[in-house]
Amino acid sequence: MNSAETLYQAFASSLDVDLSEINDDLAYNSFPKWDSTAHMILVAEIEAQFDIMLDTDDIIDMSSVAKAKEILSKYEVSF
């Protein structure tokens, strides 16, 4: 699995939705299942899958799938 597939899978399992529903445009404010609880689960899943520890500012800023990719790039994950 490449990095993008791993990230999409992390989103799908954390938000409890089918993988086909995950795309770069998916955003915190526009997807009801992505609430604060799901966000915490998502952070834990991303950290486990990529073996990183996100800064709090990045946890706050991670408001879409595209933004998650941008943030993960800072942690040397390439897409």
Partner: peptide
């Protein structure tokens, strides 16, 4: 517990 931990790293 988890919320406080995430927001105070």
């Amino acid at each position: 517990k988890q919320l406080r931990s995430l927001l105070s790293r």
